[in-house]
Every structure is written in structure tokens, then in C-alpha cells.
């Protein structure tokens, strides 16, 4: 068996999600090759080559792969992937965007968001917003799956020394072009990789309160900031902070939900956190059913007090 892992990166560095996918690949077992596709992404390839257990790194450095356009990346991965037993990518917006295209090009069904490897062809994945766990088995010759990073520990990042092989041929489908990007800039840890996440909901009332009331707590804890959909929809914070079934899935050591009721769709994104704290003025809020520590109170009093006592 040999496994092709698609590296998540920003050209300059490898994203930690790749390390979680490597762990899933190791649990499946077999030779692991990592594909780094991008533009000026040599540094990311070098980082991938340092992951222990990686047998080979494939480097596809070309303008066609800048911005990770699914139309082009999928042609590349489907072409390379024919020789592998498994093709894996992280269940990020990048992986979710191109990998189903790869599966369709290879005429195989795929599995999204696997959280557990049972055997080389059998996996667990959550369905119905995590209210049920399906055990799925695939009889496809090439097994294609996105990996939910919270289901697997990160593999070590250094210690290995795989060879880097260059793929010269570029695949340009000519079906899409990049126009622009607005990337959130933050000095805080990445939401999906942070040890502590503090999220605010509709109870925050407005964006200013996120900055003046919540941010001091977030920063004192060295945490990442998250939000409920209601807070994002209301424009309090940008979309990349949304935690939930249809946002980001997080499982930090500590998750603090502030002014969040705990709708099914929100719980789907955070209920695997190790310790959950909820601060809410409504003792009946459904978040209480998953919170290890529930503090009933007005967040505008509780949060500043908590921040000052830390």
C-alpha cells in the first residue's frame, strides 16, 4: 500500500493540519508520499521532507497551483493518485474543495471527515452534525478521504529526511482564475490548532464588545478567538472565526463559550474539546449539557472579572 498525502501549506510553511493527516496515514499503514503543490513552495516541501515517516515528497511548483485552485490541483492529484491505494487531505476548505473532484475524476466514491481508522478500508466519520458516528467501508480500489484533524494527533514535524522529487508538468484546466483574496490577519494562534479557544456568541451584542470585552480574555489566555454563526452573521466578527457543523471544527484543551446558547450546529464544532466552560446568563441554555463548568452570569461582569483575576 502507498498513501498520497496532500500537504496543506501557504507556500512558505507547512500547516500543522498536514501533521494530523500524516498520523492518519500512519494508522492506515504503508509508504507515505506527500505532495506539495503551489507556487514558490520549496520551503513547504523542505518542511514536509523533515516529517519522520515520510518516504518521499513530490514538489509541484507552478503558477497553475498558486491559490490552490481546485480545477488545476484536482487534475494533478488525480493523475498522480492513480498509483496509490489511498489519497488523503485535511478536511479544510482546501481539501474539501479539490478532493471530491479528484474522486470524481478517478470515478470513486469518497469519505469526508474521517475521525478514526479502523482498518485500511474502514473508517469512522461523524454524520448529522456529530449526533451519530458512521462506520463506513469502501470497496473502491483507490480510497479517497478527507481527514478531520481533531481526530488525530499531530505527527512530529522534524527528524526525517525524505527525498524531494520535482514534478515539472503543470496541469492548467483553464476553467477558473484567481481574482482576489482577503485573508484575516491575526497574531493569535490558529483557531483549529490552538490549545485554548474562547468563543463569543450573539450575547456579545456587537463587534466592539468582541474587541473590548472578549479580546483581553483571549489574549491573557494566549487563546484563539472563535464565534458562533449568529455572531458572524450579525457582522460582529469575520466568517473565518465560525465554529460549528459548517464552520471550523475545534477540539482544544480548553474551550470557553461566552454568550453562546449551544445549538446543535455549534456543539458539532466544539464538543470534543477536553474541557468546556460556558458563561451564560441563562441556566437552561443547551450549552450546559456539554459544559464541564457552567458559570451563570452576565458576561459583561464575569468576563472582565475573569480576565483581571488570571
Amino acid at each position: 500500500m502507498s498513501i498520497l498525502v496532500y500537504a496543506e501549506h501557504d507556500n512558505a510553511s507547512l500547516k500543522s493540519a498536514t501533521l494530523n493527516v500524516i498520523t492518519a496515514a500512519q494508522q492506515i499503514g504503508g509508504d507515505i508520499h506527500v505532495l506539495v503543490a503551489g507556487q514558490n513552495c520549496q520551503a513547504a516541501a523542505t518542511a514536509a521532507a523533515a516529517i519522520p515517516g515520510v518516504a518521499k515528497v513530490l514538489l509541484a511548483d507552478n503558477a497553475a497551483y498558486a491559490h490552490q485552485l481546485a480545477e488545476n490541483i484536482s487534475l494533478l492529484v488525480a493523475d498522480l493518485g492513480k498509483g496509490y491505494s489511498h489519497i488523503l487531505a485535511a478536511a479544510t476548505t482546501t481539501g474539501k474543495n479539490f478532493l471530491p473532484r479528484v474522486a470524481a475524476l478517478l470515478d470513486v466514491g469518497m469519505m469526508s471527515d474521517i475521525t478514526k481508522v479502523i482498518s485500511a478500508d474502514t473508517f469512522e466519520r461523524p454524520i448529522y452534525a456529530g449526533n451519530a458516528i458512521a462506520t463506513v467501508q469502501t470497496s473502491e480500489a483507490i480510497k479517497v478521504a478527507t481527514v478531520r484533524t481533531t481526530g488525530f494527533d499531530a505527527a512530529p514535524a522534524t527528524g526525517g529526511s525524505a527525498a524531494v522529487e520535482t514534478i515539472a508538468e503543470a496541469k492548467d484546466a483553464g476553467k477558473s482564475s484567481f481574482v482576489s483574496e482577503e485573508l484575516a490577519k491575526s497574531d493569535r494562534p490558529e483557531l483549529t490548532a490552538a490549545r485554548i479557544v474562547v468563543s463569543g456568541g450573539r450575547g456579545m451584542q456587537n463587534g466592539d464588545n468582541f474587541n473590548t470585552v472578549l479580546a483581553p480574555l483571549v489574549d491573557k489566555l494566549g487563546a484563539a478567538m472563535g464565534a458562533s454563526r449568529a455572531a458572524v452573521d450579525a457582522g460582529f466578527v469575520p466568517n473565518d472565526l465560525q465554529v460549528g457543523q459548517t464552520g471550523k471544527i475545534v477540539a482544544p484543551e480548553l474551550y470557553v463559550a461566552v454568550g453562546i446558547s449551544g445549538a446543535i450546529q455549534h456543539l458539532a464544532g466544539m464538543k470534543d474539546s477536553k474541557v468546556i466552560v460556558a458563561i451564560n446568563k441563562d441556566p437552561e441554555a443547551p450549552i450546559a449539557t456539554v459544559a464541564d463548568y457552567f458559570l451563570e452570569g452576565d458576561l459583561f461582569q464575569v468576563v472582565p472579572e475573569l480576565t483581571s483575576k488570571l
Binding site: N131, A132, T135
Partner: peptide, 14 residues
């Protein structure tokens, strides 16, 4: 489908 569901179980309860 070639991806078959073998079983469906409840998630671990907190």
C-alpha cells in the same frame, strides 16, 4: 454505493 455504512452508533456522551 461502493462506500457502505456498516453501522451507525451514538457519539461518546460527555
Amino acid at each position: 454505493p461502493k462506500v457502505k455504512t456498516l453501522k451507525v452508533t451514538p457519539p461518546a456522551e460527555r
